[in-house]
Design a protein around this nucleic acid. Structure first.
Lengths: 205, 205
DNA sequence: TAGATTGTTAATCGATTAACAATC
DNA sequence: TAGATTGTTAATCGATTAACAATC
């Protein structure tokens, strides 16, 4: 789905959505122009219009876009209405923090559970979400048709986990481990290497 | 510093470093070719050579790069030898997870402390790192000449925190809050919006 | 030497920006 | 109507890839 949007445009859509949602419900905010969005997010205004053109929302000359329509169109494009489930592998500090993070619901995503190999964690709950042993992975993913996963395990374990996830039917992985995962090319992977990003920042000083 | 490297190349350098460090110290690993790196990281081999050309390490036709030299050159380019301190603002789940995360040291970065406004957290420690009240921000940053910070607070608080950080002398910010920070353009900012990235993945399914 | 691999120059590709007609 | 803003087409910019000479 959403095949014909450039990846850079796609990545900005949640940013627009987020921004539009923060605008207070006031008289003056009924319409919003691409220029106003561009200024707030420090982007070019033509770029904003081009990005928004991928959604079903069309703006009106002179006034801009109807804010609520634009929000709805972005939500539709990002499939936020079909609620999706995701799981987390790794219930260390990061995994537990993500279990407790409420921000995923803004995009229609719910974290169902976490998985860990530590016997002391298995069977416990964080933010009312269960932590299962790795042996439950297949069962949980298949029963709930989960296709989204977050990897929050040490680098050394990540590749093995990725393979288990794929075997369990996962189609997209958000990977926090600092390794390049080798998986079938049909599986979508986004890497988030926190330390590497901090290192890049530090080297720019 | 490092002004004349394209941002995309710069962002790949820690990835190369990371990969090279994982290679075992074996006879056959004395040299490494751009082709081998490219294959492991799923990049083009010319791209790898171009990226590596920004460092001081030069490869040898027929054999490739001396692995240890390349690691040293990457470390030098990324200024990993001058140890740097960073602070975290926000000692919620994410902030605490990052306080306990050891991966920053691989890039010569140490997290000195976290800051929070919650009285129950102030004065406590996570992974032997202190959590201070916000009133200590200036003092700590200036005494230890800290110029790197991570924002791990809710979106609503992030802009205010960013301004305090800049006032305290911070020059680069890794921002986990899902808002566009408005700060002086000389301040470097990298945004890491976990939920937005998961949403992008989900919409690609 | 012959062959593999580097480093560089030119070509391509994709993303962003500029220009501008359409329009409410 | 006049003016502001959209949407689109063309131009620019930057990143990646292809081609290939240099070289150990």
């Amino acid at each position: 789905m959403n095949k014909d949007i450039p990846i850079f445009s796609l990545q900005r859509l949640p940013v627009y959505l987020n921004y539009l949602r923060t605008l207070p419900e006031e008289e003056g905010n009924y319409y919003i122009s691409s220029g106003a969005i561009a200024q707030a997010l420090r982007l070019g205004e033509v770029l904003v219009r081009k990005d928004l053109a991928y959604t079903s929302c069309t703006g009106r000359p002179k006034v801009g876009y109807v804010r609520k329509e634009l929000i709805a169109a972005l939500e539709e494009f990002l499939c936020i209405n079909n609620k999706k489930s995701a799981i987390i592998v790794g219930a260390g500090g990061l995994g537990r923090a993500l279990l407790g993070y409420g921000g995923f619901t803004h995009y229609g995503i719910e974290i169902d559970a976490a998985f860990d190999s530590d016997q002391n964690k298995i069977g416990t709950y964080v933010a009312d979400k269960p932590i299962y042993g790795m042996d439950k992975l297949n069962e949980v993913c298949k029963e709930a048709s989960v296709t989204l996963a977050i990897i929050a395990v040490p680098a050394s374990a990540a590749q093995g986990i990725a393979e288990k996830l794929v075997a369990a039917g996962i189609k997209a992985i958000l990977n926090f481990a600092p390794v390049q995962l080798t998986v079938d090319e049909k599986i979508k992977v986004i890497n988030m290497d926190v330390a590497a990003n901090l290192a890049v920042l530090a080297s720019m000083l």
